[in-house]
Amino acid sequence: MTGPTAADFPIRWAWEDGPLTPGLTCVFRVKDEARNLPWVLPPMFDAVQHVVLVDNGSTDGTPEVAQRVAEEHGAADRFTLRHYPVQVARAGSEHLLTPPDDPRSLTYFYNWSFSHVRTAYSMKWDGDMVLTAEGVELLRDLSWQLEDSSAVVAIPRHPMSVESESVAWLDLGYRFLEPWVYPMGPEFTFVKAFEWEVREFPPTSERIVAPEGMCVELKWLDQDEFAHWSETTFDPVRTPRKHRELEVMRALHEGRGHEIEGLKRIEAPAGVHVVDYVTTQWMQLEPRPLTLRLELQETT
């Protein structure tokens, strides 16, 4: 039996049909993120003009949860749900061995997902990343300030390992920085890199770096955070972010979180979920700078 072909999932960019609508669209590519979406989607609907969510074969009801949250938030008219029922190569060696024009490639999957954007700017976002109150305000402002600028925006994120409803560990040992917001156009598509896909942009593009405290990346200690990787041996030089994440996860599972420099234990007040506490209260009150060390940026 042959696998899916490009003809099954054709890519046609909106810019081929004329000028794009002003605004910012957030694109999620998700699989089994039902647990996170009630935290992830509401602030994003408050922050951007449109949300595209592409489900990649979830078995936990992710599409249904996403649609319900959109309707409950009064944002159903600004929400596009698409399905990509293809077994996509996992990051790492599987991705490296998969041609970029194969629908099973992360590169093709991302380009297909972003081809559903109809606004002038788009933002890559993950199904486990929660905007803080500050993050919502930042993106609201950016959505009109970026128009016609050709700038790309890097947003620091803070990994947060959730131990229970009241306790989490926030990694403030490094500044995890990655470009997330880009203009839409032929110079800003995804290409293949060694471990994963990379979005291209011209060297002349202005690079804006958002302040810290914009979002937290949820990591649940009762889940396998590396299931989408074909291996879990990470080079501390080539892939320092994943190396750090694995170090933190192992320490927490072994009860050694206090031994990791920059890893902060946070306990929420009674009756408040720790995700809500960190994103709506704690992050706003904590003095800046949040992180202790130089930023981690991976180039592949």
Rank of each mutant, 00 (worst) to 15 (best):
Y182N: 06
P269R: 00
D17C: 05
T204W: 14
Y110E: 05
L172K: 06
H228G: 13
A76Y: 02
L290H: 10
P203V: 00
L24H: 01
I266N: 10
R157I: 06
E212T: 04
H95D: 15
P236F: 01
E178H: 14
D276I: 04
V69S: 08
A66D: 04
M129S: 15
P183V: 02
F114H: 10
P10N: 13
M249A: 13
L263C: 03
P202Q: 09
P156M: 02
P269K: 00
P156K: 01
P63A: 07
W180C: 11
A154V: 00
D77M: 03
Q145E: 07
E267H: 05
R199V: 03
E247F: 01
F28Y: 15
V162A: 11
P99Q: 06
I208C: 13
F176P: 02
V209K: 11
Q87F: 08
A154C: 04
V54F: 10
E33S: 05
R35Y: 10
H50C: 08
L37F: 02
P186E: 02
V248I: 08
V27P: 01
L97T: 15
F226G: 07
M214K: 15
Y174N: 11
S58Y: 02
V86H: 03
S166Y: 05
R175Y: 09
W39E: 04
T59G: 15
L24S: 09
H243S: 10
E137H: 04
R35E: 10
